[in-house]
Design a protein around this nucleic acid. Sequence first.
DNA 1: GCATGCAACAACGTATGCGTTATTATGGGG
DNA 2: CCCCATAATAACGCATACGTTGTTGCATGC
Lengths: 231, 231
Amino acid sequence: MGVNAALPTAPARQATAAETAYQRLKAMILDNLLPPGSQRLEAELAVQLGLSRTPVREAMLRLQQDGLVTVTPRHGMRVQPISAADMRDIYDVLESLEPKAAELLARRGLDDAALRPLAEACDAMEAAIAAEDRPAWARADEAFHHGLATLCGNRRLSAMVMQVWDQSHRARMFTLAMRPLPARSTAEHRATLVAIRAGDADGAREVYRQHRQRGGAELIALIERSGLAWL
Amino acid sequence: MGVNAALPTAPARQATAAETAYQRLKAMILDNLLPPGSQRLEAELAVQLGLSRTPVREAMLRLQQDGLVTVTPRHGMRVQPISAADMRDIYDVLESLEPKAAELLARRGLDDAALRPLAEACDAMEAAIAAEDRPAWARADEAFHHGLATLCGNRRLSAMVMQVWDQSHRARMFTLAMRPLPARSTAEHRATLVAIRAGDADGAREVYRQHRQRGGAELIALIERSGLAWL
DNA sequence: GCATGCAACAACGTATGCGTTATTATGGGG
DNA sequence: CCCCATAATAACGCATACGTTGTTGCATGC
């Protein structure tokens, strides 16, 4: 699952009722237990989660801020569907931000220990390709992007990447089965990591930009071709 | 002042108490009526705004999401200071996102009527330079960036730009008086608009990227040189 | 004089109650 | 049979109340 978008020092929220409501609802949305278009009232979710309306309301507002739902006064929250146009917007954002993250990370000159999450994600992706295990590949892919965002050292940038990443999570999961095994993507991730390790900021940025551009175009074409207008 | 960061269809919130609390507190922060570092308790703000704690609390949480304050359980909200490092992060984000906005806007091929806010902002900037009116220049600058973000057609991107723009508002205001008249910036804005009008997406992006890079570097150097560690 | 433990208090998180408002149901007219 | 007005009702925004928890001040001991 994603990560909360706190700034500038991640506050490591404790287990307040509002926080658990947020986490649980967010997980339900990302896991498609609350499919796009579904609506839920405050009181309804309150009984379901065994809480009062207050913390549930707070969670709903946070999810709205995250762009995962819209809250309308007498209709509760509605899980936001993602259209092909939305995916275009999201990938335009990612094409802008993620290459910058790669550049910043390369410039930081972290040692191998610090870059280990990325290396492990690359290993896992390659293993998943070999085993033709798509769910495992998707998890490793998320781990790589998550690691890139967190390690780049710019909390604002990383929070923004995570936000749109979460918004597009469902769409990626749906299309995963429809795509050929992403062997090329895997190689591009590895190449990015090599450039980062070498401290080649421009190289890392450009390799990654091409990866994002190609991947985004492929995904959007797939969505449009398959008639999956709303996810 | 800034704009709220709603997605994906701006909900045009009505005048609920929580909304007015949010607007008023945000304005107080951006206008430096609540200076960085100041702390306010829920109950304190509630009596000041003539409301109960509930809507004030909601506003505080939204401001925290915006990165303008941090909320700590028994210390209320604390207005977030901006360091030189923060400004670097913010300008890295803007350097990534705003050129993309210029590119997207150029690609949209809007007519002169639709681009009027940008043209007017350019005119106002040039007039302000001629009159050596820095506050007027700052307002026109904000109008240009606001227009660029809103007109580019990507709500997510625009919300993100506005968010960091608001975060850096105070810092820009403080340094405005210390900088030479931004004549060059003004010319760069005009050049961007020309490229957008011509539908030259790559040109608009690159002109704008250079503008952002130069402007950001100047501002950060100024902040560091002047010993203004926290704004 | 300084540290430590305890007690009083203050702030908050959550629950609940109340008034407002939009939606839905109902009944009468066209 | 459909449409509109009106009434009933449900959902919500805000206020308030309550229990919990962290903080602060004070007293006591070293």
